[in-house]
């Protein structure tokens, strides 16, 4: 299920913790599994749990607790827009609305071509750069006015 490349990365995470505390690597391992698969399937969660010697339900608790794990398939690009108050004051909500209109979808929906999933998100710790959005949990885009959003969408193909 997990590629040897993923397992190697997980091993590197495990090494950060005391030998009897493998479970500490579960967040990283789930993130790696999600990167490999695009989302976190039940099998992937179980695989991670077994690899780390923890109960599958314990890994499932973790996977369902943290927002950045996707337990359902998402589009090729997951675009998360921060709409929390500081961002809202500087256009975060408007940016979300703009994206919805442009893509013809609402939050938690995916474009019919499977390209983009739109998510509303909580504070990303980048309020000074509002409006901000993150692509696939990794790439943060700052100061996203309509022009920048258009550019971004043109790029995500």
């Amino acid at each position: 299920m997990l590629t040897s490349e993923s397992l190697k990365r997980i091993d590197r995470e495990i090494a950060k913790y005391p030998a009897e505390q493998k479970q500490s690597a579960v967040m990283a391992a789930l993130a790696i599994a999600q990167e490999q698969q695009g989302w976190l399937s039940t099998e992937a969660i179980e695989c991670v749990a077994n690899y780390l010697g923890m109960a599958p339900i314990a890994a499932y608790e973790v996977a369902t607790f943290y927002n950045m794990y996707d337990l359902k398939p998402v589009g090729k690009y997951k675009v998360s827009v921060c709409t929390n108050l500081p961002c809202m004051l500087t256009g975060g909500v408007d940016a979300g609305e703009y994206l919805k209109k442009k893509l013809g979808i609402g939050y938690n929906q995916t474009t019919s071509d499977g390209l983009i999933t739109l998510k509303e998100s909580e504070c990303m710790g980048a309020c000074g750069d509002a409006p901000v959005m993150i692509i696939n949990n990794r790439r943060m885009c700052s100061w996203m006015n309509p022009e920048e959003i258009d550019k971004l969408l043109a790029e995500l193909k």
Binding site: K16, S24, M27, A28, Y66, N67, M68, Y69, E122
Partner: peptide
């Protein structure tokens, strides 16, 4: 010293 990342939980 090691880095541990969160994954979306205030």
């Amino acid at each position: 010293l090691f880095a541990h990342h969160g994954y979306g939980a205030y």
